[in-house]
Amino acid sequence: MARQNISVTTDCVIFFRNDKESKVLLVKRKKVPFKDQWALPGGFLEDEEPLEDGAKRELEEETGLKVQHLKQLQTFGTPGRDPRGRTISVTYLGEVTSEEKVQGNDDAAEAGWFNINDLPELAFDHSEILEVARIEYFR
Rank of each mutant, 00 (worst) to 15 (best):
Q4I: 14
D36K: 09
Q103S: 12
E46I: 00
N5V: 06
D125I: 15
K66Q: 14
R81I: 12
E131Y: 10
E49D: 13
D125N: 15
G85A: 11
T9C: 12
C12S: 14
G80C: 09
E110H: 02
G64P: 08
V102Q: 05
A111H: 06
L65P: 02
V13W: 11
L65R: 01
V96G: 09
C12K: 01
E60W: 11
P120M: 07
I6M: 05
Q103P: 00
D107P: 00
L65G: 01
A2P: 15
F76I: 07
V102F: 07
R29C: 08
E52K: 07
V27N: 04
R86T: 04
F114K: 03
Q37W: 09
D36F: 11
R29E: 08
V90M: 07
E62F: 13
P83Q: 04
N5E: 13
L26D: 06
K31Y: 08
W38D: 01
A55R: 04
H69W: 08
R29M: 15
I88Y: 10
D19V: 00
V8E: 09
F15V: 00
P83G: 04
L25H: 10
I6P: 00
K35W: 06
L59Q: 01
Q72A: 14
L73V: 01
L122W: 07
E21L: 07
G94L: 15
Q37T: 05
H69M: 10
F44W: 03
W38S: 01
L40R: 03
V96S: 05
E131C: 05
V27K: 04
S7E: 11
K31V: 05
Q74Y: 15
K35M: 14
Q103C: 10
V67Y: 06
R86G: 00
E48W: 12
E100R: 13
